[in-house]
Amino acid sequence: MSATEHGTMNLKLIVWRQSGPDKPGRFETYDAKNITPHHSFLEMLDVVNEDLIKAGKDPIAFDHDCREGICGACSAVVNGVPHGGQERTTLCQLHMRKFKDGDAIYLEPWRARAFPILRDLIVDRTALDRLVQAAGFVSCHTGGVADGNAILIGKPEADYAMDAAECIGCGACVAACPNGAAMLFAGAKVAQLAELPQGQVEAPQRVAAMVKAMSDNDFGNCTNHYECEGACPKGVKVKFIARLNREFTKALFQETLGTISTNRGTSKE
């Protein structure tokens, strides 16, 4: 029976449970009862957790916050697909009308070398923050900047930068990648800032530092599977990975020519 407007569903959840970072984990099976098509996926988990709490069991730990698809906190692999596979949709915005009565749903945390599991479906994603800390910024300080309209930016360039800046940093791209690469995440940041005049001054140093930070933080490399783009809830495109590669090659070439140094803090000779 498929879910109708008024019908409710009963589902089986097979969930990864792990009580701590270095503890052994296992799959446990739970029932999700009387779920309506209008429940969001996380609201369905709320129902299951209330039942678990009342039965004296530990509820399933999962990351979530805004529940409107923008903060990037929610993160679970649903039936093998990060965020559950609805196009351009985070897990919190996935609604149960996409499932039907009797479905069995497998729930796992993000799986990537760079994201150690903290508990159940919660992983440590601070490696993504460290990529930004390495160079994902324009090195301006507060105050003393030019008028906003003193820097003209064409609409196509502004739109391109905004397309890249849509990234919510959830890490689905890393979880989807067979190599655990963060190339879509890093590519989006590199492309956004390399496209804008404000970011071009440091573009070679930025891309070099971010590429180094990716390998320092246990992320893999890109071998063109495009799984990242498929999993991205914000529709960030792999063309930004191509842009990262181009910016990186350009920086290497400029360094070879001796026109720049990719070492931060080293002045051009």
Binding site: F137, V138, G143, V145, G148, N149, L152, G154, K155
Partner: peptide, 22 residues
């Protein structure tokens, strides 16, 4: 007004018109 300037300097991709203005 300083806030807008600051955010532009950081690379915040505000909407622009076709002439490139905010």
């Amino acid at each position: 007004n300083n806030i807008i300037d600051q955010c532009v300097a950081q690379g915040v991709p505000f909407a622009r018109d076709y002439a490139g203005y905010l």
